[in-house]
Nucleic acid binder design. Structure first.
Lengths: 151, 151
DNA sequence: TATTGACTTAAAGTTAACTTTAAGTTGTAG
DNA sequence: CTACAACTTAAAGTTAACTTTAAGTCAATA
């Protein structure tokens, strides 16, 4: 199957202008054109775009993604570098997830805080609570928030 | 204790200009000034800034954070809205984490793919493998990548 | 063959969240 | 009292990743 830029964009849930931008930035050297100059996406190109999207979600800038695509175009001699690149991105995403987990801990604390305040009608109640009255999983967040006071 | 903008910036690992920018955008209405116009951060302000940072990490834009800060300044009548806001942000972060988990699955597949390619000396080996030869946890990624072919 | 919707390009515009610059002020250490 | 680092402001600059615009071309349908 052959797809136009609009069709492929729909398959990926992005704007056609995004795919044109990627092409201009050198991310799509594999892309073929019709005699009249129209972009012709193949089924196999979906895989390229899926991986590009994955690297974007991992936080990689467009220019670095282009460097990776160029590596792939060079062939098997770059396998080692590509493996290294994916190991690096894996680590980066693992770190992002654990950072977001810490953020989630803080949000959970604040949800508990405002649920408690709502029941009491005032934020004074959760605010003035002793550490023992705070649910165990929340305590490290409360400690974090009071960090400055203990310096 | 009282801190200058530079000292507080160091405590939060941000640039002093970032705190000045937040101030200009109305995120720090609690902040006091010296007679000469210098910003004077208190220990309690660390907690405000920690929560601002948490909301930023949750993906909230500066303007929405300002709206939240204004809610807090209004007092106990906004407790319900604040609880709703934090529940919303919690959900948003949970979704971000599961999106990143899917990205991690793809990266893990690619790491396996290039490890296999490296051992064989060519990407042809993992590329041409049947589904049964692919480790079980990786199979759904390979299926995803081949999605377009089956449409 | 004419219409029409989707395509083409280059170039300019957008957005958020800062960062830098320039000119001047404050506060502290010697 | 003088130096000087760190502060103050307003305004302009930066960056990435698109998006929009304008002027024109392609290709499928009636």
């Amino acid at each position: 199957m052959i797809y136009t830029v609009g069709e492929m964009a729909k398959m990926l849930s992005v704007a056609p202008s995004t795919l044109r931008y990627y092409d201009k930035e050198g991310l799509l050297p594999f892309l073929e054109r019709s005699g009249g100059g129209m972009r012709m996406f193949k089924d196999a190109d979906f895989e390229w775009l899926f991986i590009i999207d994955c690297l974007k979600k991992a936080g990689m800038p467009i220019k670095d993604i282009r460097d990776f695509i160029e590596m792939v175009m060079k062939g098997d001699e770059t396998i080692g570098d590509r493996l290294e690149l994916f190991n690096k991105q894996r680590k980066a995403v693992e770190e992002k997830i654990s950072q977001l987990q810490a953020t989630l801990d803080t949000l959970n604390y604040k949800c508990w805080y405002y649920e408690t305040a709502k029941k009491a009608g005032t934020t004074a109640v959760p605010r003035e609570m002793n550490m023992e009255e705070v649910p165990e999983q929340m305590r490290h967040v409360k400690e974090m928030l009071q960090k400055a006071h203990s310096i």
